[in-house]
Write a protein that binds this DNA or RNA. Structure first.
Lengths: 108, 108
DNA sequence: CGTTATACATCATATCACGAAGTATTGTTT
DNA sequence: AAACAATACTTCGTGATATGATGTATAACG
C-alpha cells in the first residue's frame, strides 16, 4: 500500500489492536500485519506517539522472565477510533469523486 | 479531516479533478474543495510532484490576457487512479478491522 | 485609484514511516 | 556448550510532504 495512504491508517490500526484487550509490541505487529504492513521501528514510534497523546497507557509486566510493556487504550483512544469512523464517511465521498466515470456527452 | 489521512488522498483527488478535462490551479482548488480542503501552496506543490512523476503534463496558454498553466493527465496518472481503486479494497478491510465491535463473550 | 479575485511561486517548519543497527533474554538445534 | 532463531524493545538518520506565510502580477469592479 502507498506509504502516504498508510499514514492516516496506522495509528487507528494500532488502537484497534488493543481495543478489546491489552497487548504488547510484538503481538500488535502480528495482529495488524494481515491488514497493513508495519515494522518494529514504525510500531514503537507509533506507540510512543499515542502514549504522548494520551490515547493509551502503559504498564510493564513480567512474562516468562522477560519484561513486556502492555498497552491499554484510554477514552481518548476510543474517541480517536470513533472520529476515524466519521472520517471514513468523508473518504467514501472522496472515493466516489475519484472513481467516478466521465458521463460527459451522454449519447455517443 | 486528519492531516495524515489527507496525505494519501490529495494526489488522486487532483488527478481526478483533471481526469475528464484539462484544468488549471485555481479551478482545481475549487473543484476539489467540496471533497477535501487544500490550500494553494499545497496544490502547487502537488502539481509539481505529479508533473515530475509523469502523471500529468503541462501546457501554458493565454486566457484573458493572463497566462494559465493547463494540466493534462497522462496514462501514468490514469493508472495511479486505478491503483487507488485497488488500494481502496485494502482500506475497506482495514476499516472493518478498526470499526469491528468486540463480540468477545457472546451471550451476556 | 483602491480593493478584490484570479493565478502562480517559494520557503521554512513540523510530522512521520522506515531501514539499519543495537541490546538482551529465552528456547532450540547441533 | 556453542550456535542460532525467536521474542521484545530502543534509537538514529533520512526522505517525503502538507501547510502557513509571503511574494509577484494582472484583470475586474466600484
Amino acid at each position: 500500500m502507498d506509504i502516504q495512504l498508510k499514514r492516516g491508517l496506522l495509528d487507528v490500526c494500532v488502537l484497534a489492536a488493543i481495543k478489546n484487550e491489552d497487548s504488547y509490541g510484538y503481538k500488535i505487529i502480528k495482529d495488524v500485519k494481515p491488514y497493513i504492513e508495519l515494522s518494529e521501528s514504525t510500531l514503537y514510534t507509533i506507540l510512543k506517539r499515542l502514549e504522548a497523546a494520551d490515547m493509551l497507557s502503559v504498564r510493564t509486566a513480567e512474562h516468562g522472565g522477560r519484561l513486556r510493556k502492555y498497552y491499554h487504550i484510554t477514552d481518548k483512544g476510543l474517541r480517536r477510533i470513533e472520529d476515524f469512523k466519521d472520517e471514513w464517511k468523508e473518504m467514501l465521498s472522496i472515493y466516489r469523486f475519484v472513481s467516478k466515470e466521465d458521463e460527459g456527452n451522454g449519447q455517443a
